[in-house]
Each structure stands twice: as structure tokens, then as C-alpha cells.
Computed example of a mutant assay.
Amino acid sequence: MNGSPLPAGALGIGWRREICGMLAGLEGIGFCEVIAESLTADHSRPPRDSRSRGRATVTVPEELAALVRRGIPAVPHGISLSLGSAEGVDDGRITQLAESARTLGSPLVSEHIAFVRAGGLEAGHLLPLPRTREALDVLERNIFRVMRSLDVPLAVENIAALFEWPDAEYTEAEFLQELVERTGVYLLLDIANVYANARNTARDPLTELLRLPTERLAYCHIAGGHESGGRYIDTHVHPIPAEVLALVAKFAPGRPVPLMLERDGNYPPATELVAELNAIATASARPPVTLRTESIPA
């Protein structure tokens, strides 16, 4: 495996304003991830250099800046580039992602293998691509366009999908492998998404996970979900199920890939969130994180 731009074997967490006080008290985390679109673009300030196309800079919350000053890398994670869009990628959104990385001094950025807009309409959701050569051509073109505007590597993430397009020309593993070979992009592997897709299509999650390309792994997402209407939904607001932790335990030990807890709402008490992080640490045979007692709300 080519080394990740992040610290080997690191355990990370998604930075969110709602839990920033707790995150400030964590000891032992190796990185965090911030939603790039949550950072405020300031159009009144000039860009840092001529490579910033959007003529805007990004304002970083002080709580996040404090983590970066402690030496904890922050990865901007985009959710709206629409890398799979046949209409191309919006320059302003590329600039937001690129300037977020410059401002934070990030070692890489990440986005999704998905599309979110077509015909001028915003879906408001990450939609799956058909696994065809034509879709790969679109992805390749858009990824190269984004990479030309970045100072750091790009990682792309597999998504959870409740349906698959018909007439697929590739399996998911073949699709990702060719994408990596064509572009040299890193892979952000979401283990919970692999579990969700396998379970909803009556496939074995471990078999699907072990088929995926690992030579360009940047880091992994691990998140919770629940079953609804006979389908498993990747929610990011529920605890990590035992089945996903079991996948981590089969996949992560012996691999130095960084792992990250992804939580986007319904935040539990600080001690429970730390316990969830340490469940990942235990499953991956890594040192636990700790929380300074003065950081626990009364």
C-alpha cells in the first residue's frame, strides 16, 4: 500500500461544531475531518495566491484552528462537488475545497464518488453512478480537473446507495480499481457503506470489503446506522453496529490505514462518544483515546 498522507495508524473523528468542546479535550486522536461546505467563504478578502480561482478565502472556527495548532491534521471533506456529474464540476465549489485545505494546512482533501446535481437541479443527496465505462470517463475528467486546482492529494469515497443502476459493466471493486489506476487518486474507504450495500443486496460484507483496492488507501470512515423497512440505512446518527466493528476487526489489524469515526447528529454524552472511538481502537488493535476530565460536561 502506498502510504497515506495522514499519520500511519491514526484514529480520527469528524469535527462538528456541536461537539467541538469535547473534541478539544481528546488525547490520542491523530486527525480530524471537517465538512468543507461548513467553513465560511469570505469574499471580502483577497485570495492567498493566484491559484485561488474563486476570489474568496475561508474562515476557520477558532476551536478547529486550535486543534490544528496542536498538530492534529484537519481534512476538508466535500459533499457537493458532484464528481460524477456529466455537466462538470463548478469552479466555485472546487475553490472552496482548495482554499479550505490551504487555510487549514491540510495534508489532503476528500469527496464522494457520486453526483448531486443534474439539469440545474440539486438532489440534496449523494446519488450513485452507473458502473459503466462512460461514467468512469466522466469521473476521470472531473477528478483531473479538481486535482489541477489542489495543492494536496485528493481522496474519493465509496457511498451507500439504496439502489443500483441496471446494466453494470463493472463490479464495485473493478470500478474503483480502474478509477484509481486511471487517475492515481487516493481512496477514502467507508467500511460502513460497504456493509450497508452488501447487506441490502444480500452479499457478504467481508467478501465485498476484501475485494476493494487497498494500494491507495488514504483513510477509512466508520459510522452507525439502523434498519428501516427491511433495509439498512447508513445514518451517521446511530451507534456503530457490532457487525461493522467486526468488519473493522477483520480488515484493520496489520494495516496502518487511518480510521475515523463519522457522526453527524444525535450526539451522545462525551463518555459514550469516547467509548465508540475506543471500540474502533479495540477492533483495530490500536491504542485508546482519552478525554480530559475537565472536558466532560457537568
Rank of each mutant, 00 (worst) to 15 (best):
N2V: 06
S4E: 13
P5T: 04
P5F: 03
L6C: 04
G9A: 07
I13N: 00
R16P: 03
R16S: 08
E18P: 15
M22A: 01
F31A: 05
C32N: 10
C32V: 13
C32F: 04
E33G: 10
A36V: 04
A36Q: 00
S38R: 04
A41H: 12
D42T: 07
D42G: 06
H43Y: 15
R45L: 15
P46S: 04
A56Q: 13
V58H: 10
T59K: 14
P61C: 11
A65G: 12
A66K: 01
V68M: 09
R69E: 12
R69N: 11
R70G: 05
G71S: 13
V75Q: 09
V75M: 11
P76F: 11
S82D: 08
L83V: 02
E87Q: 07
G88K: 12
G88H: 14
D90M: 03
D90T: 00
D91R: 14
D91G: 06
G92P: 02
L97T: 12
A98M: 00
A98E: 06
E99M: 12
R102Q: 15
T103K: 12
L104P: 15
L104T: 15
S110Q: 06
H112W: 08
I113K: 02
L121S: 05
E122G: 02
H125C: 06
P130Y: 00
E134V: 14
E134P: 12
D137G: 13
L139E: 06
E140Y: 00
N142Y: 09
V146P: 09
R148H: 10
P153N: 05
A155V: 08
I159N: 06
L162V: 02
P166Q: 08
P166L: 10
A168C: 08
T171A: 10
T171S: 15
A173G: 07
F175I: 06
Q177F: 04
L179I: 09
E181L: 13
T183A: 07
V185W: 04
L187S: 03
A192D: 09
N193L: 07
Y195L: 05
A196D: 04
N197P: 00
D204Q: 13
L209C: 08
L210A: 15
R211P: 05
L212W: 10
T214F: 01
T214V: 03
E215D: 15
L217P: 03
C220E: 03
H221K: 05
E227Y: 11
S228Y: 06
R231T: 05
Y232H: 12
Y232T: 13
D234E: 08
H238T: 07
P239T: 08
P239S: 03
I240G: 08
A242F: 03
L247K: 01
V248A: 02
K250E: 08
F251I: 04
G254H: 14
R255S: 10
L259Q: 10
M260S: 04
M260W: 07
N266V: 07
Y267L: 02
P269R: 10
T271G: 00
L273C: 05
L273V: 01
L273T: 13
V274R: 15
L277P: 14
I280G: 02
A281K: 02
A281S: 06
T282G: 11
A283I: 09
A283S: 11
S284H: 04
P287D: 01
V289L: 12
T290L: 12
L291T: 10
L291C: 10
P297G: 03
P297T: 12
